[in-house]
Design a protein around this nucleic acid. Structure first.
Length: 277
DNA sequence: AATCGTTCCTGATAGC
DNA sequence: TGCTATCAGGAACGAT
Protein backbone atom coordinates (compact mmCIF):
# COMPACT_ATOMS: atom_id res chain seq x y z
CA UNK A 1 0.00 0.00 0.00
CA UNK A 2 1.47 3.30 -0.98
CA UNK A 3 2.49 5.45 1.97
CA UNK A 4 4.89 8.41 2.01
CA UNK A 5 8.02 6.55 0.79
CA UNK A 6 6.12 4.76 -2.00
CA UNK A 7 4.39 7.94 -3.18
CA UNK A 8 7.72 9.77 -3.09
CA UNK A 9 9.27 6.97 -5.17
CA UNK A 10 6.49 7.22 -7.76
CA UNK A 11 7.05 10.97 -7.92
CA UNK A 12 10.79 10.60 -8.39
CA UNK A 13 10.44 7.88 -11.02
CA UNK A 14 7.81 9.77 -12.99
CA UNK A 15 8.61 13.48 -12.88
CA UNK A 16 11.35 13.65 -15.51
CA UNK A 17 9.37 11.40 -17.85
CA UNK A 18 6.28 13.58 -18.01
CA UNK A 19 7.85 17.03 -17.71
CA UNK A 20 7.04 19.15 -20.77
CA UNK A 21 4.76 16.52 -22.28
CA UNK A 22 1.48 17.62 -23.88
CA UNK A 23 -1.75 15.82 -23.04
CA UNK A 24 -3.03 14.62 -26.38
CA UNK A 25 -5.97 12.57 -25.20
CA UNK A 26 -7.36 10.50 -22.40
CA UNK A 27 -9.36 7.31 -21.96
CA UNK A 28 -11.50 6.59 -18.94
CA UNK A 29 -12.01 2.88 -18.46
CA UNK A 30 -13.09 3.29 -14.83
CA UNK A 31 -14.38 6.89 -14.67
CA UNK A 32 -15.38 6.57 -11.01
CA UNK A 33 -11.79 7.23 -9.89
CA UNK A 34 -12.23 10.81 -11.18
CA UNK A 35 -13.93 12.59 -8.30
CA UNK A 36 -13.89 16.22 -9.38
CA UNK A 37 -14.90 17.70 -11.78
CA UNK A 38 -17.06 15.28 -13.77
CA UNK A 39 -15.13 13.02 -16.19
CA UNK A 40 -16.49 15.06 -19.13
CA UNK A 41 -15.34 18.36 -17.62
CA UNK A 42 -12.07 16.71 -16.61
CA UNK A 43 -11.37 15.70 -20.21
CA UNK A 44 -12.38 19.13 -21.52
CA UNK A 45 -10.16 20.94 -19.00
CA UNK A 46 -7.14 18.83 -20.00
CA UNK A 47 -7.20 19.84 -23.68
CA UNK A 48 -3.74 21.12 -24.58
CA UNK A 49 -2.46 20.93 -21.01
CA UNK A 50 1.25 20.46 -20.38
CA UNK A 51 2.80 18.70 -17.36
CA UNK A 52 5.24 21.13 -15.73
CA UNK A 53 6.39 19.17 -12.70
CA UNK A 54 5.35 17.09 -9.72
CA UNK A 55 5.09 17.36 -5.99
CA UNK A 56 4.02 15.28 -3.01
CA UNK A 57 2.12 16.18 0.13
CA UNK A 58 1.63 13.32 2.58
CA UNK A 59 0.36 10.46 0.44
CA UNK A 60 -1.01 12.79 -2.22
CA UNK A 61 0.71 13.18 -5.58
CA UNK A 62 0.53 16.61 -7.21
CA UNK A 63 0.91 17.23 -10.93
CA UNK A 64 1.54 20.89 -11.75
CA UNK A 65 0.04 21.88 -15.08
CA UNK A 66 0.94 24.73 -17.43
CA UNK A 67 -2.38 26.53 -16.84
CA UNK A 68 -1.74 26.69 -13.09
CA UNK A 69 -4.23 23.94 -12.41
CA UNK A 70 -3.12 21.00 -10.26
CA UNK A 71 -3.99 17.37 -10.82
CA UNK A 72 -4.18 15.64 -7.44
CA UNK A 73 -3.94 11.87 -7.18
CA UNK A 74 -4.22 9.56 -4.20
CA UNK A 75 -3.30 5.91 -4.80
CA UNK A 76 -5.03 4.65 -1.63
CA UNK A 77 -4.53 0.89 -1.37
CA UNK A 78 -3.68 -0.49 -4.79
CA UNK A 79 -3.30 2.44 -7.19
CA UNK A 80 -0.38 2.37 -9.65
CA UNK A 81 0.83 5.04 -12.05
CA UNK A 82 2.76 3.47 -14.91
CA UNK A 83 4.59 5.26 -17.72
CA UNK A 84 4.74 3.01 -20.77
CA UNK A 85 4.54 2.64 -24.53
CA UNK A 86 1.08 2.79 -26.13
CA UNK A 87 1.89 -0.69 -27.47
CA UNK A 88 1.90 -2.17 -23.97
CA UNK A 89 -1.12 -4.52 -23.74
CA UNK A 90 -3.98 -3.21 -21.62
CA UNK A 91 -3.65 -4.33 -18.03
CA UNK A 92 -6.56 -6.04 -16.27
CA UNK A 93 -7.20 -3.23 -13.79
CA UNK A 94 -6.54 -0.28 -16.07
CA UNK A 95 -8.64 2.73 -15.05
CA UNK A 96 -7.25 5.79 -16.88
CA UNK A 97 -4.94 6.52 -19.81
CA UNK A 98 -3.28 9.89 -20.46
CA UNK A 99 -1.68 10.02 -23.92
CA UNK A 100 1.38 12.25 -23.67
CA UNK A 101 3.10 13.80 -26.67
CA UNK A 102 6.77 14.74 -26.73
CA UNK A 103 6.73 17.70 -29.11
CA UNK A 104 10.48 17.52 -29.72
CA UNK A 105 10.45 13.93 -30.97
CA UNK A 106 6.81 13.50 -32.00
CA UNK A 107 6.67 10.39 -29.80
CA UNK A 108 3.61 9.49 -27.79
CA UNK A 109 3.64 7.55 -24.54
CA UNK A 110 1.05 6.54 -21.98
CA UNK A 111 0.65 7.51 -18.38
CA UNK A 112 -1.68 4.79 -17.10
CA UNK A 113 -3.55 4.53 -13.84
CA UNK A 114 -4.21 0.98 -12.61
CA UNK A 115 -6.15 0.15 -9.48
CA UNK A 116 -7.29 -3.32 -8.41
CA UNK A 117 -9.60 -2.10 -5.65
CA UNK A 118 -10.53 1.22 -7.27
CA UNK A 119 -10.13 3.17 -4.02
CA UNK A 120 -7.78 5.67 -5.63
CA UNK A 121 -8.99 9.11 -6.64
CA UNK A 122 -8.19 12.03 -8.92
CA UNK A 123 -9.07 15.71 -8.55
CA UNK A 124 -8.38 18.57 -10.92
CA UNK A 125 -8.00 21.76 -8.94
CA UNK A 126 -8.19 25.29 -10.33
CA UNK A 127 -5.47 27.71 -9.22
CA UNK A 128 -6.01 28.55 -5.56
CA UNK A 129 -8.52 25.74 -5.09
CA UNK A 130 -7.83 23.02 -2.52
CA UNK A 131 -9.22 19.81 -1.04
CA UNK A 132 -10.30 19.21 2.56
CA UNK A 133 -8.03 16.17 2.87
CA UNK A 134 -5.08 18.06 1.46
CA UNK A 135 -5.61 21.29 3.33
CA UNK A 136 -5.90 19.66 6.75
CA UNK A 137 -2.73 17.56 6.46
CA UNK A 138 -0.29 17.78 9.33
CA UNK A 139 3.40 18.61 8.81
CA UNK A 140 5.65 16.57 6.53
CA UNK A 141 7.66 14.23 8.78
CA UNK A 142 10.75 14.87 6.66
CA UNK A 143 10.24 18.63 6.64
CA UNK A 144 11.30 21.50 8.91
CA UNK A 145 7.81 21.90 10.43
CA UNK A 146 8.08 18.51 12.09
CA UNK A 147 9.81 19.48 15.31
CA UNK A 148 10.18 17.79 18.68
CA UNK A 149 8.09 20.58 20.20
CA UNK A 150 5.32 19.90 17.70
CA UNK A 151 5.30 16.16 18.38
CA UNK A 152 5.37 16.67 22.16
CA UNK A 153 2.54 19.18 22.01
CA UNK A 154 0.36 17.06 19.76
CA UNK A 155 0.85 13.83 21.74
CA UNK A 156 0.58 15.09 25.31
CA UNK A 157 -2.74 16.53 24.21
CA UNK A 158 -4.29 13.25 23.04
CA UNK A 159 -5.82 10.30 24.88
CA UNK A 160 -6.07 8.13 21.78
CA UNK A 161 -3.76 5.17 21.15
CA UNK A 162 -0.38 6.16 19.77
CA UNK A 163 -0.77 3.86 16.75
CA UNK A 164 -4.05 5.54 15.80
CA UNK A 165 -2.46 8.97 16.31
CA UNK A 166 0.42 8.12 13.97
CA UNK A 167 -2.11 7.11 11.31
CA UNK A 168 -4.01 10.40 11.69
CA UNK A 169 -3.02 12.44 8.63
CA UNK A 170 -4.04 15.68 10.34
CA UNK A 171 -1.33 15.15 12.97
CA UNK A 172 1.50 13.92 10.72
CA UNK A 173 1.21 13.53 6.95
CA UNK A 174 2.12 10.33 5.14
CA UNK A 175 2.43 7.57 7.74
CA UNK A 176 0.34 4.45 7.06
CA UNK A 177 0.05 1.05 8.69
CA UNK A 178 3.48 -0.26 7.68
CA UNK A 179 5.51 2.70 8.93
CA UNK A 180 3.38 3.20 12.04
CA UNK A 181 4.24 -0.35 13.15
CA UNK A 182 7.89 0.02 12.18
CA UNK A 183 8.41 3.31 14.01
CA UNK A 184 6.70 2.07 17.20
CA UNK A 185 8.85 -1.06 17.21
CA UNK A 186 12.05 0.92 16.72
CA UNK A 187 11.01 3.39 19.41
CA UNK A 188 10.08 0.55 21.80
CA UNK A 189 6.52 1.79 22.34
CA UNK A 190 3.38 -0.37 22.65
CA UNK A 191 0.92 0.58 19.92
CA UNK A 192 -2.03 0.83 22.34
CA UNK A 193 -0.30 3.26 24.69
CA UNK A 194 -2.27 6.52 24.98
CA UNK A 195 -0.54 9.50 23.38
CA UNK A 196 -0.56 11.46 26.64
CA UNK A 197 1.06 8.53 28.50
CA UNK A 198 4.29 8.64 26.49
CA UNK A 199 7.35 9.59 28.50
CA UNK A 200 9.67 12.38 27.34
CA UNK A 201 12.26 9.74 26.40
CA UNK A 202 9.69 7.88 24.30
CA UNK A 203 8.63 11.05 22.50
CA UNK A 204 12.27 11.80 21.70
CA UNK A 205 12.85 8.28 20.39
CA UNK A 206 9.72 8.47 18.27
CA UNK A 207 10.77 11.85 16.94
CA UNK A 208 14.13 10.44 15.87
CA UNK A 209 12.81 7.18 14.45
CA UNK A 210 9.97 8.52 12.25
CA UNK A 211 12.17 10.39 9.72
CA UNK A 212 14.78 7.63 9.96
CA UNK A 213 12.41 4.83 8.91
CA UNK A 214 10.78 6.91 6.17
CA UNK A 215 14.13 8.00 4.73
CA UNK A 216 15.51 4.45 4.81
CA UNK A 217 12.46 3.24 2.93
CA UNK A 218 12.76 6.01 0.32
CA UNK A 219 16.40 5.00 -0.14
CA UNK A 220 15.19 1.43 -0.81
CA UNK A 221 12.47 2.75 -3.15
CA UNK A 222 9.59 1.80 -0.89
CA UNK A 223 7.92 -1.38 0.34
CA UNK A 224 6.23 -3.90 -1.98
CA UNK A 225 4.05 -6.27 0.06
CA UNK A 226 1.66 -7.25 -2.70
CA UNK A 227 0.78 -4.62 -5.28
CA UNK A 228 2.99 -1.56 -5.01
CA UNK A 229 5.15 -0.74 -8.07
CA UNK A 230 6.85 2.47 -9.14
CA UNK A 231 6.16 4.21 -12.47
CA UNK A 232 8.52 1.83 -14.26
CA UNK A 233 6.69 -1.20 -12.87
CA UNK A 234 9.56 -1.96 -10.48
CA UNK A 235 9.07 -3.31 -6.96
CA UNK A 236 10.49 -1.59 -3.92
CA UNK A 237 13.08 -3.22 -1.68
CA UNK A 238 12.19 -2.12 1.84
CA UNK A 239 9.96 -5.18 2.47
CA UNK A 240 13.28 -7.00 3.00
CA UNK A 241 14.16 -4.64 5.85
CA UNK A 242 10.86 -4.61 7.77
CA UNK A 243 11.42 -5.49 11.40
CA UNK A 244 7.84 -5.97 12.62
CA UNK A 245 5.12 -5.28 10.03
CA UNK A 246 3.46 -8.46 8.68
CA UNK A 247 5.72 -10.64 10.83
CA UNK A 248 3.15 -11.85 13.40
CA UNK A 249 4.03 -15.33 14.67
CA UNK A 250 7.69 -14.92 13.71
CA UNK A 251 10.52 -14.41 16.16
CA UNK A 252 11.38 -10.83 17.11
CA UNK A 253 14.77 -10.06 15.57
CA UNK A 254 15.73 -8.19 18.72
CA UNK A 255 14.73 -10.57 21.55
CA UNK A 256 13.53 -13.76 19.84
CA UNK A 257 10.05 -13.74 21.38
CA UNK A 258 7.00 -14.34 19.21
CA UNK A 259 5.64 -11.22 17.48
CA UNK A 260 2.00 -10.59 18.37
CA UNK A 261 -0.86 -9.16 16.34
CA UNK A 262 -3.81 -7.08 17.49
CA UNK A 263 -6.31 -4.60 16.04
CA UNK A 264 -6.04 -0.90 16.73
CA UNK A 265 -8.38 1.57 15.12
CA UNK A 266 -9.51 -1.17 12.76
CA UNK A 267 -5.94 -1.78 11.56
CA UNK A 268 -3.90 -4.90 12.16
CA UNK A 269 -0.92 -4.05 14.31
CA UNK A 270 2.18 -6.15 14.88
CA UNK A 271 4.27 -5.66 17.99
CA UNK A 272 6.74 -7.36 20.31
CA UNK A 273 5.41 -7.45 23.89
CA UNK A 274 8.98 -7.80 25.16
CA UNK A 275 10.61 -4.93 23.27
CA UNK A 276 7.68 -2.51 23.25
CA UNK A 277 6.44 -1.04 26.53
C1' DA B 1 -14.27 17.76 19.95
C1' DA B 2 -13.12 13.15 19.81
C1' DT B 3 -13.84 8.57 18.67
C1' DC B 4 -16.20 4.86 16.75
C1' DG B 5 -18.17 1.96 12.93
C1' DT B 6 -19.32 1.75 8.00
C1' DT B 7 -18.41 2.23 3.28
C1' DC B 8 -15.91 1.75 -1.03
C1' DC B 9 -13.49 -2.67 -3.74
C1' DT B 10 -11.01 -7.10 -5.35
C1' DG B 11 -8.01 -10.90 -4.55
C1' DA B 12 -5.73 -14.18 -1.55
C1' DT B 13 -6.46 -17.53 1.65
C1' DA B 14 -8.79 -20.61 5.07
C1' DG B 15 -12.22 -23.85 6.21
C1' DC B 16 -15.62 -27.20 5.09
C1' DT C 1 -13.73 -29.09 -6.69
C1' DG C 2 -16.20 -25.29 -5.37
C1' DC C 3 -18.52 -22.74 -2.28
C1' DT C 4 -18.64 -19.09 1.57
C1' DA C 5 -16.31 -16.32 5.05
C1' DT C 6 -12.60 -13.52 6.42
C1' DC C 7 -9.00 -10.37 5.87
C1' DA C 8 -6.07 -6.70 3.76
C1' DG C 9 -6.92 -1.14 4.63
C1' DG C 10 -6.90 5.07 3.51
C1' DA C 11 -9.93 8.30 4.11
C1' DA C 12 -14.66 10.22 3.90
C1' DC C 13 -18.72 10.01 6.23
C1' DG C 14 -22.33 9.49 9.67
C1' DA C 15 -23.41 8.42 14.36
C1' DT C 16 -22.65 8.77 19.17
Amino acid sequence: MPELPEVETVKRSLEEKIKGKVVQGMEFLVPQVIKRPTPEEFREAFQGEVFQGMGRRGKYLLFYLHSGKILVSHLRMTGQLIYCSPETPQEKHLCLIFSLLDQATGETNHLRYLDIRRFGCFYLLNPGETLPGLEKLGPEPLGVDFTLDYLRKVLTNKKGKIKALLLDQELIAGIGNIYADETLFRAGIMPDKPGNALTEAEIIRLYQVIPQVLQESIDKRGTTISDYLDSEGKKGDFQNYLQIYSRAGEACMNCGNVIQKTKIGGRSSCFCPQCQK
